[in-house]
Design a binder for these strands. Structure first.
Lengths: 202, 202
DNA sequence: CCTACCGATCGGTAGG
DNA sequence: CCTACCGATCGGTAGG
């Protein structure tokens, strides 16, 4: 952010400020509970000024949803993970993810907002740009031929991503309430379960 | 609903009507996008009438969250599932759940609304009433001594519930977008992965 | 990009 | 339980 910002046009910088402000407010309060006035105030301009950059409140959300969706961080990270065996790869990918997402489960909130407040209506458009990358990861698993049980690649990918969703969601819902050790241990266990779950048995 | 309703006092019937109306509206639109006027209209009374039964909009949500939370359906179903082996038990529980929840993933929405729009602030109170039941299920897994790898019971329960969350969430996000076979096949695969994941290897 | 404004709708209440 | 109303706030716009 620091390097880029200085080289952006003033209009572009304002646009980013609006997106950043709206992004953090949406994560914190959800979409409908966030007002255009809050966004304007946090972005440092008057209410009316927003409409020079976005046509409506929903247009702001759409821009955020497609530009800042965690998929854009998650998928490349997984794709960049290394490992000769399924074990290595799964663990590396799992930890790269959690390291990068920090322990900020609210990154998932963008997706949850989309489900709760928009009934997933923006998903199809986003999906088009992401599907190829997901299948790319699928081929990574294919390379571990014989190490993985015969599960259709799309389902395997769904389960792999699902592992993270379930980790984060149960963390949000149960964090601190269940006596379940540290977060790292929990993730390791989740990764282990997935790993043993997809591995071919000998 | 049919048998009970007739034996309830008029006031109690109105209360239920309000809860039912609000429930379906919340699932459909989320909390902040649903107005008290919509709830009143759908429940068949005037706006002011609601306040004879609930002190505020949030009080309605709190009542719904604690009374109609899917946990109340999920946990007993799992507890009632049978099976001599971990395999049988896991599969029976998984299918009992999906049969009962129908294929209505939006039942999960209550929980997602709580996360997105309330930041989980009602969870602790709900958790108190549910924790014992969850641990009860944990002891079920304990009975399968030697069949399951040594995973702390709370973590095992978290992973088990997480399996369903991830199934439903990925279904919402990817349903129809990914070429991944029927829903039943997908659930079976999810259950299989969990099962092989927690099973002790021989 | 701001000021000043629009009509609409919000949650909630008084008074009967 | 309804009618009629409250002040506050909403998303959005005109005009400069």
């Amino acid at each position: 952010m620091s390097i880029e910002t200085t080289s952006l046009s003033k209009s572009e910088r304002t646009r980013r400020a609006i997106l950043e402000a709206a992004y953090s407010l949406f994560l914190d309060q959800g979409y409908h509970a966030t007002s255009m006035r809050q966004i304007a105030s946090k972005a440092g301009l008057a209410l009316g000024g927003i409409y020079n950059h976005f046509g409506s409140k929903e247009e702001i959300f759409t821009a955020i949803f497609t530009e800042k969706h965690p998929y854009h961080q998650i998928v490349p990270l997984i794709a960049a993970s290394e490992g000769e065996t399924v074990e290595d790869f799964t663990h590396n990918a799992a930890h790269a993810l959690v390291d990068a997402l920090g322990h900020h489960p609210d990154l998932l909130n963008l997706m949850l907002i989309e489900i709760v407040e928009f009934k997933g209506k923006h998903v199809p458009k986003l999906f088009d740009s992401i599907f190829p990358k997901i299948m790319e990861i699928g081929t990574r698993f294919n390379r571990f031929n014989g190490q993985v049980r015969p599960i259709p690649i799309p389902l395997l990918m769904r389960a792999f991503l699902g592992m993270f969703f379930s980790y984060y969601i149960t963390e949000i819902m149960l964090a601190g309430l269940m006596p379940s050790g540290t977060q790292e241990e929990s993730l390791d266990t989740f990764a282990d379960i997935f790993l043993n779950g997809v591995k071919r048995q000998f």
